[in-house]
């Protein structure tokens, strides 16, 4: 018997994603992005994102159906990101999903965006062997999760206490005259720089901070340190070595992210790590995570880039896991929740 066909809709930030999944098999992953419209702002603007989702959701749905070569009638259940994310953006996806579920007379599942990132990995390398530690890094998220069961049990181990890692990339890019989005531009500049030329601080790694914020991150002090360094060079009339600054900054971020995620695996006795989120596209972060996981005997699992960034297939994958477990659909009246805690995998 083939597994049920799950349609997943994701609109928590600036990507409008629609995916189709059977079990852990990916059939379609269509994404429309409003990033171009956000370049002017140097980040995501909620009102712009909501309008863009509204325009993109139906065309993206048709692209996904074409890609999977199925019709709407073939869909067995609909899953949608209920949160966390931008309130106005989430609302568009939830409304679209409700309309589809009613029109098709199929069950509807409102699921957690963060856990969706972890479920996406199952589309790449097959079913997860839980428990896993997940390191999620993007423009709006920097979290370490422990997932004991992708369909039912996730917990937040740590998160940023100020800026998200992706936000730090964007702001540091601006400090050194690079463009938005900061991630790819810093990576490119860092390729010509020496990562050990400038030692930038690793936030929340001191003894006192490790007691209180063991798995938490802070990138605000790092940002300030880069600003100071650049100002000093400028005041002395020296040209700013953009490559070295970019490489030193990138190294500091990758170092602290991977060190704490590996520590979480070790202290919790967990031997699998999942790396996901848009910043997981950063080559140095991937490389250092791989090295440290190997050294610690941890299996690192990471989906391809198109499954790392926000997409609908990850929501369909989580929906498929929930359906497989026979869990009840969400009550139809549910609304989006911009600060949905990670412990609520299904609402």
């Amino acid at each position: 018997m083939t597994a049920p066909l799950i349609l997943g809709i994701e609109t928590s930030c600036d990507e409008t994603g629609v995916g189709l999944v059977r079990g852990t098999t990916l059939l379609a992953n269509a994404v429309a992005s409003s990033v171009d419209e956000h370049v002017r702002f140097g980040g995501v603007v909620p009102e712009v994102a909501s309008r863009a989702h509204l325009e993109a959701v139906v065309p993206t749905l048709h692209r996904a159906l074409d890609e999977a070569q199925v019709g709407l009638d073939d869909v067995d259940a609909v899953a949608v990101t209920a949160g966390p994310g931008l309130a106005g953006a989430l609302m568009v996806g939830v409304s679209a999903a409700k309309a589809l579920a009613v029109a098709l007379d199929k069950p509807l599942y409102g699921v957690n965006h963060l856990v969706g990132h972890v479920a996406a990995e199952q589309l790449e390398n097959g079913p997860l062997t839980e428990p896993v530690v997940a390191l999620l890094v993007s423009g709006g998220h920097t979290e370490i999760l422990q997932v004991d069961d992708v369909a039912t049990a996730a917990e937040l181990l740590g998160q940023t206490i100020d800026d998200a890692a992706g936000e730090a990339f964007d702001k540091v890019a601006r400090l050194i005259g690079l463009k938005y989005p900061g991630g790819p531009h810093i990576q490119r500049a860092a390729a010509d720089g020496d990562p050990s030329a400038i030692r930038f601080p690793r936030g929340l790694t001191g003894q006192r901070d490790m007691a209180r914020h063991r798995y938490d991150f802070s990138f605000s002090g790092l940002k300030t340190a880069v600003a100071r360094w650049v100002e000093t060079a400028e005041r002395a009339g020296d040209p700013v070595p953009v490559g070295d600054v970019a490489a030193g900054f990138q190294e500091a971020v990758a170092d602290v992210l991977t060190a704490k995620a590996v520590l979480a695996c070790q202290e919790r006795g967990i031997s699998t790590m999942v790396l996901a989120g848009g910043v997981a596209a950063n080559a140095r972060l991937r490389e250092l995570t791989q090295q440290r996981c190997e050294a610690a005997g941890i299996e690192l699992r990471q989906p391809r880039f198109s499954l790392c960034t926000d997409n609908g297939a990850m929501i369909a994958a989580l929906g498929a896991a929930v359906v497989e477990r026979g869990l009840p659909p969400s009550r139809f009246e549910f609304g989006s929740d911009s600060s949905l805690p990670v412990t609520e995998v299904l609402i």
């Binding site: 995501v44 709006g140 206490i161 100020d162 800026d163 998200a164 936000e167 400090l175 605000s220 300030t224």
Partner: peptide, 30 residues
């Protein structure tokens, strides 16, 4: 400027007011 300590001050205010945290940078969500 970037890194001046605006969010740190906001964290102190939020703590003093007794509001639910964490108070992190609102840059992303406005």
């Amino acid at each position: 400027d970037l890194g001046a300590g605006k969010t740190t001050l906001a964290q102190g205010v939020g703590d003093g007011l007794g509001v639910r945290g964490p108070i992190t940078s609102p840059t992303f969500v406005l």
